[in-house]
Nucleic acid binder design. Structure first.
Lengths: 142, 142
DNA sequence: GATGGACCTTCCCATGATGGGAGGGTCAAG
DNA sequence: CTTGACCCTCCCATCATGGGAAGGTCCATC
């Protein structure tokens, strides 16, 4: 199966499949004489695996780890569970952080007349705001 | 006030202040003879404004807009409110999406023994999972 | 008035996941 | 054999951010 077929079979763009090859995450089973990447069922499954993990919001680093556990028939489920639990905790933290932002903004917006006049508590808050000492800047996988 | 002092006064790195200058978001009030950037109270306030908006999770594009509204004494509060409301809606959507991910993972993790044995519903799900047709890939400002 | 250290400048590079595109080779159907 | 769809590699761009090099500036201390 060449890269385009693998792309259609997995829902991952050919570009990204080449990228995964490049970073060593999923290498093609072989190359044809014409240097075309050849994928078989194993790689296609791995690519699907990656897509699903990505859909669950795992970072590429987490996916790399999960994939190596997936490839290892003997892995203890403990390790997988640990990654999943860490990821859940991370998601929960981000959710809480975003919830706080949304609530703060909702409050400000609620206090803003939203008419033709220039008085606006939202901008007023941004001008003089209390800023509660830097929320962390996390990076986002998805 | 030079860039280092402005950085300390606003909590934004000198690097980022130079970047904001470069993209035209906040230009220094002047340059000294030695070509040092000179910031005064106005710019420092604007930089603080940016930091607070960033802390609320606004994207740079939104901040650019908010800043121009902030600079315009005559702006109708309606416009500001519209941006804030859109941002709240966006946050809510992301929160729901992440909540769904976290719930799905929590469920899987709950079903995983997490011991020495290799049987793991989490990997099983990633292997065969139903994947409910691509959740959107949003970019994240913060 | 020199020296040293803290500061400033610009320029270049890297990140991570992704897409765009150019320039060129390959394959299969007509 | 031609044509169009496909593949290859290589380069560039994104966006906000940081690292670092090479070189100029400022100020306090000797």
């Amino acid at each position: 199966m060449n890269i385009g077929q693998a792309a259609r079979a997995t829902g991952i763009s050919a570009k990204m499949i080449r990228y995964y090859d490049e970073i060593g995450l999923v290498r093609p089973a072989a190359r044809t004489e014409a240097n075309y990447r050849e994928y078989d069922a194993r790689q296609v499954n791995e690519l699907r695996f990656i897509r699903r993990a990505r859909n669950l919001g795992f970072s590429m680093a987490e996916i790399t780890r999960l994939l190596s556990l997936w490839r290892d028939r003997e892995r203890p489920s403990r390790e997988v569970k640990a990654i999943a639990d860490r990821h859940v905790a991370d998601l929960d933290a981000r959710i809480a952080e975003m919830q706080a932002m949304a609530d703060a903004l909702r409050h400000l917006s609620h206090c803003c007349a939203g008419d033709d006049r220039p008085d606006c508590p939202i901008l007023a808050d941004l001008t003089a705001g209390s800023l509660p000492s830097d929320p962390p800047r996390r990076s986002r996988p998805s």
